[in-house]
Simulated scan of single mutants.
Amino acid sequence: MSYTDIPQELRDLRQWGLYHRIWQPSKNKYTKVPVDPYSGGAGKSNDSSTWSDFATASNAMEHFANADGLAFYFANGYFGIDIDHIKSDVDAFIEGDRDNNIVDEFVISTQSYTERSMSGEGIHIIAKGNLPDGQRRHNNFEMYDNGGAFLCFNR
């Protein structure tokens, strides 16, 4: 994946930052924390003063050792969908198998941007619109539209 694959509509937004991965041995997985693209210090997913435009965030990655990639913050009518533990569907989709595939269902049914998750076992989706009220998490499926959530773009 290349950052040039990110749609211009998303790059035009001032909802960008950086993230840093931290290994959590007790959970046997990484956690991701926001990084301020202006200072390299702690970013905040719920504080737009620590967000920047795409160009600033992209350029900042070269200056801060703790920057592992770009972060996109959910706000202003954009929401995210995170689906984990679907490695076989992700692999099948990449190999061209579009039949009975959850990845294909999301790519076709939404006007969205989709990328493979850092683990390679899921997908992250950014779409425009409003999430319905109610439950936002179910098993391996999560949806976010604000307040502490962000999507990581792999380097």
Rank of each mutant, 00 (worst) to 15 (best):
K44A: 14
C152V: 08
W23E: 02
F153V: 11
D5T: 07
A71L: 06
F64T: 03
N76V: 07
A42Y: 03
L131W: 04
P37T: 11
D68C: 01
G122V: 09
D47Q: 08
T50G: 12
Y3T: 08
I6M: 07
G41M: 05
Y78A: 10
G17Q: 00
V35S: 03
S119M: 12
G129M: 06
I83R: 01
F72C: 05
N146A: 11
M118R: 13
V103L: 03
E121N: 15
L131T: 12
A92Y: 07
I6N: 05
T31E: 11
K128V: 09
Q8N: 14
N46K: 15
S45N: 11
Q111I: 11
E105S: 06
Y38W: 12
L13N: 04
E115L: 13
I102V: 14
I83E: 09
F106M: 05
I81K: 00
D68P: 02
D145Y: 05
F72K: 02
P25T: 12
S112M: 00
F150S: 06
H124E: 14
H85R: 12
S52I: 13
I123R: 08
G40L: 00
M143T: 15
N59C: 03
S88G: 07
G122N: 10
E9Y: 08
V35N: 03
T31I: 12
N46L: 12
T4D: 15
N59H: 09
Y73V: 05
R155P: 09
